[in-house]
Design a protein around this nucleic acid. Structure first.
Lengths: 231, 231
DNA sequence: ACAGGCTGTTAGGCTAGCCTAAGTCTCAAA
DNA sequence: TTTGAGACTTAGGCTAGCCTAACAGCCTGT
């Protein structure tokens, strides 16, 4: 009679939803999410995280190895993916249908994702034609809870001389997103990596229109690219 | 240095927003909202209301006369109208743009109204062409906080022989709304009051298409009508 | 005028979620 | 092998918001 066998789940609180999302993101490369990383991501003190982790492992949403970190259980992963789906559908909808700028959607979606019903998300997805990527290029989980896992490489780590397509911008900061949009660095754009300065210096790329951009290391780490074949 | 002079207001909690809305609705005919009416409307116990009323009058949102009831201060009224605007814009948007049925929008809007930003409400209102009434015919407060106050009469209280236009359905119950829609009793419809049975019996009306409806007292109290001139 | 019933308030307790302060564990470097 | 820094947890306390039980005020009927 462990926790996962209880059928009628109480609805998750807003707070729990946020913790699950954080754990999902922090473990997306595999491994454990640490207390302090979660605390930082959610802007709470570490003991708050310890306390919540205790509760969440009791309800079977996470696996907690004390002093090591946490991972999502299948049930927790399902819940996290549902939240991420909501978030990304909302971002897409606000952008396409209500004229939001891709730099502004995140904050709004962050609030709404806790309040929308599955039905509403379904209607929005439908109105958008079941989009597969959000405005930042991140894959949208399906209603069934499946998410595409692409092998992307950060622009900062691409080989000089290679050709890539900017696939996803792994950031939600409004100012950075506005800057990137100004520079024409949005998902789908084709980039030729023509140079990179030493000592974590900027990467220099050429866009499809022949113009070049100098992309500092900080930003180049956020730009996730798909290598183009033939290179 | 009373509460209303403090400039930087903390954001209202979800709970506070709900209390203010209740007080607004309960005092819309003038007078005081009582503890027990608020408790019933929000499905909480009366002492919870007493406690909240204490806090709200300390923050200057309501005026509390112990053992009498409460009224909104101008500041409380402003906040309540903002919530009502959000609710009604959301209902309108969900109905027009996302194919929601007028019986289902209320529950969804009830959740969303606490999460949407003013900006989003503005975008939705804009997309709808600044609607003045929600799908139930209720007036939508302006962004400036003004609301139309029409003199409507319940269908149950109309004079036999008079002619009215159904203006607003003062109810949010899904089943009742579905039933009314089936009967063609939706805002804007023209009704001739042709008879009423005694002892709070049903009202009999004729629609524009010549068909008649027998409307029981319970429903007839929810149908708010505008008398048509010339009778 | 006052008793009883209803409504409202106070008292006291609970949970979720947050905090700070004070331990406890781990691991790497000496 | 020991030790210390840093990460984690436990202890204890706070607020918001809810509850039930007990008390207080109001008002109507006699």
């Amino acid at each position: 009679m462990n926790a996962t066998t209880r059928s009628p789940q109480p609805p998750l609180t807003r707070s729990v939803e946020d913790y699950l999302k954080s754990v999902f993101h922090l473990t997306s490369q595999g491994g454990f999410a640490t207390t302090s990383d979660i605390a930082e991501m959610l802007s709470v003190a570490p003991p708050s995280v310890s306390g919540m982790m205790k509760r969440l492992s009791e309800t079977g949403l996470i696996e907690h190895v004390p002093y090591r970190g946490v991972q999502l259980t299948p049930q927790g992963r399902r819940a996290a993916l549902q939240m991420i789906r909501r978030h990304r559908i909302l971002e897409s909808y606000l952008t396409s249908k209500l004229g939001y700028d891709w730099g502004d959607v995140h904050v709004e979606a962050e609030q709404l994702e806790h309040a929308v019903s599955e039905k509403l998300i379904g209607r929005m997805a439908d109105a958008l034609g079941e989009p597969r990527y959000d405005p930042h290029g991140a894959p949208i989980p399906t209603a069934a809870g499946e998410i595409e896992e692409a092998e992307l490489v950060r622009l900062a780590e691409t080989k000089v001389g290679s050709s890539v397509v900017l696939q996803e911008v792994g950031d939600e900061n409004t100012e950075r997103l506005h800057y990137l949009a100004e520079q024409g660095l949005t998902p789908g754009v084709h980039l030729a990596v023509i140079d990179r300065q030493p000592f974590n210096g900027p990467t220099i790329v050429r866009l499809g229109d022949g113009t070049t951009r100098v992309v500092g290391q900080e930003l180049a780490l956020l730009l996730l690219c798909r290598p183009v074949d033939g290179e």
